[in-house]
Design a protein around this nucleic acid. Structure first.
Length: 805
RNA sequence: GCCGGUGUGAUGAAAUCGGUAGACAUAGUGGACUCAAAAUCCACCGGUGGCAACACCGUGCCGGUUCGAGUCCGGCCACCGGCACCA
């Protein structure tokens, strides 16, 4: 009989669905285990081969945990708000909600074809009003606590999406999504104060089992640095505050620089001798895109503020103030003290503008380049700091500043608040109205959800307003506070809103009274193991940690962190080594592979392709190898064998015990490729010596997390009890993994020369005797002295041989 | 520049602790089966020299530690990912 994968796969998918095999059970006393993968954005293109890599990996983990006796929650859902759907809808004149429904059903169908053990009854859809009601609810709690606020700030404006972007969405100066130019625009935006949580987001990483590169990237992104805030007085009586990580170099501050957006300019421009020139500079800086300002503008430019100087609080000397775009308005105070002797950028600027460079840390040559080392070097030209180390000087000057009321110890972060408004239609409405009398007012909880109205025209406008703004009947409303006239907020939330808490909803997906019940959250959260893409490390992963901490502070969730363990998969490249894309025509559709070889083959191949964490290249030829393996498995067991299903054959007992050990360990460390290699090697053994019924039982059990359909079919053919996927994960006996006789390598002078077979556990004397009895070794040792013997039990013996003196 | 990672056959890759480098697979070569092909099964498969036994070389490069280094240490080089005028 042929291995009819299409029939078999459909058959078992139907059985599992009918029996509710993979439902997470809210009762019972098994320990829980929550396995999570990032839910997909249901794009119009359907499933891509990139999707099954993380899904199959975590399906294997979920299946193994069930076999290990856990009550497993392994859910799936759809992150369905977002621009591609909206753009597709505009182009094809279909409502985004209809597009979304169509895409979700296609994704669901494709995912079911892969035989994943999701609990489909818990599926969530972020665009469902019953879902986004709670997204809005969380936003309102943040608004109450002052964490959601409106501010007019320079934002990143994507010229193609006609929409603002979060800092995290701007990559290399262009829009992360469409690659178009991003420019600065001053706009009033809803913001979320993620910066209030910066320190906790940083500190709590220490206790988490995240892969190191994820932790490192989040730490970098949060960007904590310590130093001091120092107050400089200006000759006009202003206080000019700066942040510095090197307060020790204060005596070397020979000028100051403020960002073009700094308040001081607005206040003082009129009083300056060169006010017009300063304003021109500001204007041209504001017109530059982020790209021009950061990537191209390494040549320093700037203008001195004529007639306004500052006083260095340490030296008492007058120093000039400049305006330059190398100082960022959004970091620190938007102003710096410039120490050209010990900062590369300040040094460059000082050289260009002919400003004095003072050495305050000895050890370099400040005329040649800035000396930035702070580990070695001694303070000079620095009054009371002279002779101190840099570290001691930092402490001393900070104390001095605090005593004089001129400054204090200060921590700064690169992390900025999260720009939370989008001028688009297909997102969650922000549940706020603006009342002329009361200002911004929250929609009462009883009126949630604020449902996204059906509009005729959801195209974007160049004015930077959401398509909702033109819906007069919807926009005009009454103020919940005073009953007067009010206008609804017409911006919507970014795509990252719904995904910031979706894993909580899986615990209790149909709850109408809360985002999830307290009991359900206590039962299922936190997530035990979360796998997702590296591209979400500073977006979704950081955002959802922030939301979760906020919910923890409110007492809504029981733990301060949402995910205990985080792993990440590599991308799948096309066969030509390029990224898969429609335009290149090199996209592999999983459905085609399933049709040709079956879901089990695809699952196996995508896991066998290479190191799970690394980028891998698709190979159609290698897919066939996995199909060949399953054919070989099929041939072994397609007819019912006789014999005891619980006893391994003497010929294979050792190999089976080893396979159980190896495969179990490999799943835990995500070395799926070597786990599959172990299965292949076991089957190769079975071709050399026919397996018993018990051996086949072990094979089907071990294979079942990887290739669940064929495992189930063989299970049935062999007449074993129950389902393969419901078996207990087998134990191995360490003693039975070991050989009675071992091959011991014999080295002479560290070089492999021979090998001897010895009983396991043999002592050095016996092995040495056997080694010397070996013809080749005897020849090498003839007439010489064995000066030293290194023996590694059961592995190797190394003889150091010298000429007899 | 900073942070993280990688470098091994023709190819994808293996190698818990420093202990027989190349498991498993793809491609290839030879054979069996077949009228033939495909499929399947069996064997070989890092390089050089040799009829062979065997010898020498071999994990990006240079050096070190060690009886012994793909693995540890120091110094380079190349590539990939992230951040970047962050004071």
């Amino acid at each position: 009989m042929m291995y009819e994968f299409a029939r078999i796969e459909k058959k078992w998918q139907d059985v599992w669905e009918a029996r509710g095999t993979y439902a997470a059970k809210d009762g019972g006393n098994k320990p829980k285990y929550y396995v999570l993968i990032e839910f997909p954005y249901p794009s119009g293109e359907g499933l891509h081969v990139g999707h099954p890599r993380p899904y199959t990996a975590m399906d294997i983990v979920a299946r193994k945990r069930r076999m290990q006796g856990y009550n497993v929650l392994f859910p799936m859902g759809f992150d369905a708000f977002g621009l591609p759907t909206e753009n597709y809808a505009i182009k094809n004149k279909i409502h985004p909600a209809d597009v979304t429904q169509k895409n979700i059903s296609r994704f669901t169908r494709q995912l079911k074809m892969l035989g994943y053990s999701f609990d489909w009854a818990r599926a969530v859809d972020t665009t469902d009003p019953d879902y986004y009601r709670w997204t809005q609810w969380i936003f309102l709690r943040m608004f109450e606590k002052g964490l959601a606020y409106k501010a007019s700030i320079p934002v990143n404006w994507c010229t193609s999406c006609k929409c603002v972007l979060a800092n995290e969405e701007v990559v290399g100066g262009v829009c992360e999504r469409c690659g178009s130019e991003v420019v600065r625009r001053e706009k009033s935006q809803w913001m979320l104060k993620i910066t209030d949580y910066a320190q906790r987001l940083l500190d709590d990483l220490d206790g988490l089992d995240y892969i190191e590169r994820v932790k490192a990237q989040q730490r970098n992104w949060i960007g904590r640095s310590t130093g001091a805030e120092v107050v400089f007085a200006t000759t006009a009586g202003d206080e000019l505050r700066v942040f510095t990580t090197r307060p020790d170099t204060l005596f070397g501050a020979t000028y100051m620089v403020v960002a073009p957006e700094h308040e001081l300019i607005k206040e003082r421009a009129d009083t300056l001798a060169n006010g017009a020139q300063v304003r021109d500079y500001c204007e041209s800086a504001s017109k530059k895109s982020d790209f021009e300002r950061t990537e191209l503008a390494h040549e320093k430019t700037g203008v001195r503020l004529d007639g306004l100087d500052a006083v260095n609080p340490a030296t008492g000397g007058r120093i000039p103030i400049f305006i330059s775009d190398y100082v960022l308005a959004t970091y620190g105070t938007g102003a710096i003290m410039a120490v050209p002797g010990h900062d590369g950028r300040d040094w460059e600027f000082a050289k260009k503008f002919g400003l004095p460079i003072v050495e305050v840390v000895s050890g370099g040559d400040v005329e040649k380049e800035a000396y930035t080392d702070c580990d070695s070097g001694v303070m000079v030209n620095s009054g009371f700091l002279n002779g101190l180390s840099v570290e001691a000087a930092k402490v001393s000057i900070t104390k001095w500043l605090a005593e004089k009321g001129l400054g204090e110890y200060k921590v700064n972060y690169k992390l900025r608040d999260w720009v939370f408004s989008r001028q688009r239609y297909w997102g969650e409405p922000i549940p706020i109205v603006h009342c002329e009398a009361c200002g911004y007012v929250a929609i009462p909880e009883s009126e949630l959800p604020v449902v996204l109205p059906k509009v005729e025209n959801y195209e974007t406008t160049d004015t930077g307003e959401s398509p909702l703004a033109s819906m007069e009947d919807w926009v005009n409303t009454t103020c919940p506070k005073c009953g007067g006239h009010a206008r609804r907020e017409t911006d919507t939330m970014p795509q990252w809103a719904g995904s910031s808490w979706y894993f909580l909803r899986y615990a209790d997906p149909h709850n109408a009274d809360a985002l999830a019940s307290d009991a359900a959250l206590r039962r299922w959260t936190p997530v035990d193991w979360y796998n997702g893409g590296m591209e979400h490390t500073t977006l979704h992963l950081l955002y959802s940690r922030f939301w979760h901490k906020f919910l923890y502070d409110l007492g809504v969730v029981p733990t301060p962190e949402p995910y205990l363990k985080r792993t990440s998969h590599g991308f799948i490249l096309a066969e030509d080594g390029q990224k898969m894309s429609k335009s290149r025509g090199n996209v592999i559709n999983p459905s085609d592979t399933i049709a040709e070889f079956g879901a089990d083959t695809l699952r196996l191949y995508i896991m066998f392709i290479g190191d799970f964490e690394k980028t891998a290249q698709w190979s159609a030829r290698a897919v066939k190898g996995c199909k060949r393996f399953l054919d070989r498995v099929w041939n072994l067991a397609e007819e019912r064998l006789d014999g005891d299903p619980d006893i391994y054959s003497p010929a294979h007992e050792k190999a089976v015990h080893r396979a159980i050990k190896k495969i179990g360990a490999d799943i835990e460390t995500m070395k799926f490729n070597t786990a599959i290699a172990t299965l292949m090697a076991l089957v190769n053994d079975f071709y050399e010596t026919p397996p018993s019924r018990g051996d086949i039982r072990a094979l089907a059990t071990l294979l079942s997390p990887f290739a669940p359909h064929i495992a189930e079919e063989l299970w049935e053919i062999q007449g074993f009890e129950g389902l393969a996927c419901e078996q207990v994960w087998p134990d191995y006996d360490e003693a039975k993994t070991l050989d009675d006789d071992v091959e011991i390598a014999v080295q002479v002078g560290g070089k492999l020369k021979s090998a001897v077979s010895m009983p396991r556990g043999s002592g050095e004397d016996a092995v040495l005797a056997a080694a010397l009895a070996d013809g080749k070794i005897a020849r090498l040792a003839e007439g010489k002295t064995v000066a030293r013997v290194i023996y590694v039990k059961d592995k190797l013996i190394n003889l150091i041989i010298r000429d007899t003196a």
